[in-house]
Amino acid sequence: MSNSITACGGALRYEFLMQIRRRSVWVSLLLVGLLQIMIYVPHLSELINLYFQIPINQTMAELALMVNTLLPAAFGCLIADRLPRDRRTRVEELLMTMPQSPGVRLIGKYLGSVCATLLPVLVFFLLGTGFVLYHSGNIACIPFALATFGAIILPGILFISAFSLACPAIMWVPLYQFCFVGYWFWGNFLGARNGIPTLNGTILTPSGKITASGIFGLDPKHSGITASAIQGWESLLLLVSLAILVLCILWLVLRWQQARQ
């Protein structure tokens, strides 16, 4: 057990350092974040009047939803090349000679790449939290920032990261990235009233709208969703559970691929 934990920690540290040093991670997410800020800036006074009149827990839930609008689309694309990159640089061949199991390395790779790619997202969320604290003067926004980040942003990130790590194991990376961006907007922002079936509004909505409405009580006119507390927790647990399931399937696929070599 201790050897597995050590190996997992080593893989996590290696993957974290590899990912955090990639300029594309910072440049892509910062550009997408700046684009999102530019979208909101013309309506800033209106947003301040609107979102600072509601309870602070709902304000922080709305901030989490804003962060979850565009950044996860870039996030999933940046995770997608992790396994193919190892094959391309022949790092995978080196890792296969080590005694640690593929499952341990997979967990470390997943956690390391997620943590590294999540840092720019966290920067934007902390800037938003500072903005809320400055304008509201309500220090309660800090604990609610932790709660909303953990309940609204993180489950969706874990969900899309698992698929973004797994699908390129059997798909061409650019094709997956194209499909993923389309899925992100289809599954989170496309209204069913358009006549096109969508996952938007279900407990499989990774943008966190169900959680924001159900757990933090965000008004439907802000979230566009009406959900109960039970549905909020169901959405959170389902997204995390599916992420674990996808990683287990990926582990089996990697074992099968390794056995064929």
Rank of each mutant, 00 (worst) to 15 (best):
F178L: 15
I160C: 05
W184A: 03
V173A: 13
I39Y: 12
L12V: 12
F149R: 08
L30C: 12
L165I: 11
G9S: 14
G128F: 03
L31N: 09
A140P: 01
L47I: 13
Y14M: 14
L47S: 11
A145P: 04
V253C: 13
F125P: 01
F216A: 11
G182M: 04
A61R: 04
H43M: 10
L252N: 13
S4F: 06
R255A: 09
R105D: 13
I142M: 08
G201T: 05
L158I: 10
H43V: 12
T198W: 00
I79C: 02
N49E: 13
L44C: 04
A166C: 08
T226M: 13
A64M: 07
S101G: 02
V132C: 04
L63S: 09
Y110R: 05
I107Q: 04
R23D: 09
E92Q: 14
M98K: 11
I153E: 07
R13P: 04
I20L: 14
I20E: 07
N188G: 05
Q258A: 15
I225H: 01
L199Y: 00
G208S: 09
A11Y: 09
K209T: 12
F180R: 00
L119I: 08
S241K: 03
V173H: 01
T198G: 01
G33S: 09
L127Y: 05
I107A: 12
V246K: 01
L239D: 02
L34P: 03
A151C: 13
Y110V: 12
S235Q: 05
A151D: 02
L247W: 05
L236Y: 08
I5T: 13
T117I: 10
F159H: 02
G217I: 14
L126Y: 00
T59C: 07
Q258L: 12
S2R: 15
L106I: 07
L17C: 12
F180K: 03
A169F: 00
V67W: 00
L29M: 14
I20N: 06
V27Q: 03
L34W: 04
F75M: 05
V181C: 02
I56A: 00
V41E: 10
L254V: 03
L127K: 10
S228H: 09
L94C: 10
V240N: 06
I244E: 02
L242A: 11
P143A: 10
A259M: 13
F131H: 08
I244N: 03
G112L: 08
G137H: 06
F125H: 14
Y176H: 04
A192P: 01
G112Q: 08
C77F: 00
G150L: 15
L218G: 10
I5V: 15
I210S: 06
S161Y: 00
L106D: 01
T97K: 10
F185D: 00
S113K: 05
P72D: 04
S136A: 07
L47W: 05
L236V: 13
L218Q: 12
Q19I: 10
A7V: 05
H135K: 13
N3G: 12
W26N: 10
P102E: 08
I196A: 08
S45K: 11
G103T: 11
L239I: 06
G9D: 14
F159T: 01
W184L: 06
P120Y: 04
I5E: 13
L71Q: 00
I160H: 02
I203V: 15
V25N: 06
V114G: 04
Q53N: 13
R260G: 03
I20F: 09
T6H: 15
T198V: 01
L175F: 07
I157A: 13
R23G: 15
R85S: 14
K209Y: 04
L47E: 09
V41S: 07
